[in-house]
């Protein structure tokens, strides 16, 4: 009889191992993590790693009676810091940097990178529990987000099992391997400097603005048949450096994967009339002519996604 029980135990092992612990619902778990990450106070050091690139930053996120304030200090590379208050982003340098700093007026600081609320992720990602892991001396629970189609890549996320603050985000590539990751090496949840301390060095700064003009016109463009789950986030018109003509910037996202489409009018025939692909790390750029416009789709997504979006771009017909 002992042998039978032994066999029964063995037979039950896979089912027991695969038993859904927490979390089982992608949207619920992600909403909980996103909400905690937005609404709790914390400070810590995190590392960004992608192939041969590594950057170290310190993040402070404070919730007080006046609302939310975040400060990001670069601990590697040219010394500089970002401050975000009420959706506006400010930048400060200790010294004029030798390198360049990206313009990011909408810059979201890690770990505040998850959309909230988001109730549709279950339709596009299958969630699988990764169990528990120790990250920055915190017990974390992890999930794997497996894309349900070939129009997006997967993610692995770990959040503090008590506070649910996001502590690690891994972006996967087409082979399910790590493409890039952001992970805390130290975090103190519940504590952060005061608002005055965080605002120091920023008293004379103005919010970062996109170079040139950035306006949000009435929607002009649309993707008639986007990949499932991708919805319009914004459409702006801006002027980029070295670009003579205003450029329409159309953003689509499924909540995690994001695609930008840049639409430029050609001032002269065959100015940049071309079709092709450029890859920069995990980022792909697919460009094609469309009548008198040149369309460039950009995103860290599969090529099929960019091609489908760029090929289905069309002006919105007004009645």
């Amino acid at each position: 009889m002992k042998l039978w029980l032994t066999c029964l135990l063995f037979a039950c092992m896979p089912a027991w191992a695969d038993a859904p612990t927490t979390p089982t619902d992608a949207a619920t778990w992600l909403n909980r993590v996103a909400q905690a990450t937005h609404q709790l106070t914390y400070q810590g050091v995190f590392v960004y790693q992608s192939q041969n690139i590594m950057a170290i930053s310190h993040i402070s996120h404070l919730i007080d009676n006046n609302g939310e304030i975040s400060r990001l200090d670069a601990l590697s590379g040219p010394p500089h810091a970002f401050l975000r208050i009420d959706g506006s982003v400010y930048c400060s340098f200790q010294n004029k940097p030798s390198g360049d700093i990206e313009h990011r007026p909408h810059h979201s600081f890690f770990p505040e990178v998850l959309p909230y609320p988001n109730t549709h992720l279950n339709n596009f990602y299958q969630v699988r529990s990764l169990g528990h892991a120790k990250i920055a001396d915190h017990d974390c629970e992890g999930v794997l987000l497996i894309p349900r189609d070939a129009y997006r890549y997967g993610y692995a996320l770990w959040a503090d099992s008590t506070s649910h603050v996001l502590l690690r985000l891994i972006k996967l590539d087409a082979h399910g391997q790590t493409a890039s990751q952001l992970t805390f090496t130290q975090i103190d949840i519940g504590h952060a400097p005061t608002r005055a301390q965080l605002s120091i060095d920023f008293n004379d700064k103005l919010p970062i603005k996109q170079s040139g003009n950035e306006t949000e016109p009435k929607a002009v463009w649309q993707i008639t048949n986007p990949p499932s789950g991708f919805h319009r986030v914004t459409e702006t018109v801006m002027t980029l450096p070295d670009h003579a003509q205003p450029i329409t910037h159309l953003v689509y996202s499924d909540g995690l994967a994001t695609v930008s489409l840049f639409i430029e009018r050609q001032t002269q025939p065959n100015t940049f009339h071309q079709q092709g692909l450029v890859q920069q790390g995990q980022m792909l750029l697919y460009t094609r002519p469309m009548g008198q416009y040149q369309v460039t789709a950009v995103g860290a997504v599969p090529l099929a996604t960019l091609v489908l979006m760029a090929d289905n771009l069309a002006p919105i017909e007004r009645k």
Binding site: G77, V113, L206, M283
Partner: peptide, 25 residues
């Protein structure tokens, strides 16, 4: 650079030597 402003920040958070913009308004 314009795309990263809206994308999930699983990219380099701060510096990118390929960009031409500098920002210190």
């Amino acid at each position: 650079a314009a795309h990263r402003d809206f994308a999930l920040s699983a990219d380099s958070p701060d510096t990118d030597t390929s960009t031409q913009n500098t920002a210190e308004p």
